[in-house]
Amino acid sequence: MLLISCPYCGERPEEEFAFGGDASVVPPNGAGEGAPVGTETFADYLYLRDNPKGRHREHWIHRYGCQRWIEVERDTVTHEIHAVRVAGEGK
């Protein structure tokens, strides 16, 4: 069971969190309302993933805690957690 250090609450067990997927995926049309992009570009954004065997940046929500989104950098093989940061603040 993972131990995740929530930047808001401190170390908490995995059961308090919910996984939110790959954090490296960003919309192709920018962060706001964005410029129109082709459907293929958008489809690739929607469906394709790097799916690394190793370090993975991912979103989690501290669902049964502060309910804030955080970004976790975790190894998908060893489950070692390299970093946890406030979501959206980038690397």
């Binding site: 069971m1 995995e14 059961e15 919910a18 996984f19 790959d22 998908t76 093989v77 489950h79």
Partner: peptide
């Protein structure tokens, strides 16, 4: 288990 994993071993919960 609920999150990306290549580890072939699972989490306790």
């Amino acid at each position: 288990d609920g999150y990306n994993s290549y580890s072939q071993r699972g989490t306790w919960p």
